[in-house]
Amino acid sequence: MADATTTITAPADQPAVRVEGRKCPSTRSRGPYEWTLIVLSTLFAAIAFWFVGSIFFKSLPAFHQQGLSLITGVGWNPTDGTAPSQYGLLTMIIGTVETSAIAIIFAVIIGTGTSLAINFFLPARLRTVVATMVELLAAIPSVVYGIWGILVLAPWVLNTFGPWLSSLPGGTAVFGTTLAGKSLLLAAIVLAVMILPTYVAISREVIGAVPHELVEASLSLGATKWQTLWRTVLPTGRIGLFGATSLALGRAFGETIAVSLLAGGVVQTNYHPLAEGTSLAAFIANQFGEAQGSDQIPALFAAGLVLMLMSFAMSILSTRLVARQRKAAMAS
């Protein structure tokens, strides 16, 4: 339990053991110690509800002004006051989903392979070293991944990868001859690199926790190494792997800085992965400092609200699914 990532999943993944007979010690009398804890906890609960409430209420004026078109519309058009402003969050929502989806596909495939390799192919001595390294990498702040993307990858796309795509047969027709260095795909790839250590840190533990007896039983029945991994190890660890996926996905959803640097921050209807776009979180960071007038900030809070609902929905969904799968696993 020494690293942040495993600690995060622990409540969902492996609930602390409840011991029968260990009753709440406060049932008899509440001393100052008890009261302190209760006050602190109430304070936190208050902060949490205030957190949700303030983002909700701050965004109300935008919904009032724009109606549902705030969610379904496209465009970000603060006006000079002569006409009503028009804001639509659809581009940002699609951008968020698109970048996260691409990123999670890459991360899960590569990450699961990596975890299997770490657990089953790597010599035991190397295993702890690699594990520690992965956990350290998971702690690297996202802005560092962001500068790598914008200062190393984007110029490479611009000068090498883009021209190469255009030189392919038919490439010009599909990609044009001038690609921007930044794109939704670039943002998604950097996101994948960024959430990979987070995913591996957990999936490695999950796979490592699969009982050895199962593996040995499968091998002794004549299954090949891969059959064992595919039919025995992965299904056994699926609950944990699912938890790891949803955690990594949550991180991709909310990632602000890397996407703001790499996606280009433009609001438009071309959702091609090689085109520029933006995500909810990145758009807030891009616009916040420059926002003018009385209606732009509420609209940005509305983007925050949508992001919050998406992330809460994700978290509730994953908790539910993990709980259901666990129940099913226990029943069988």
Partner: peptide, 22 residues
Amino acid sequence: ASGSVMEGTGKLWGATNVSGES
């Protein structure tokens, strides 16, 4: 039709091969 002077990200420019600059 309703295009006007703008300071922000603005109405949608129609171009699709675009790059946003801060």
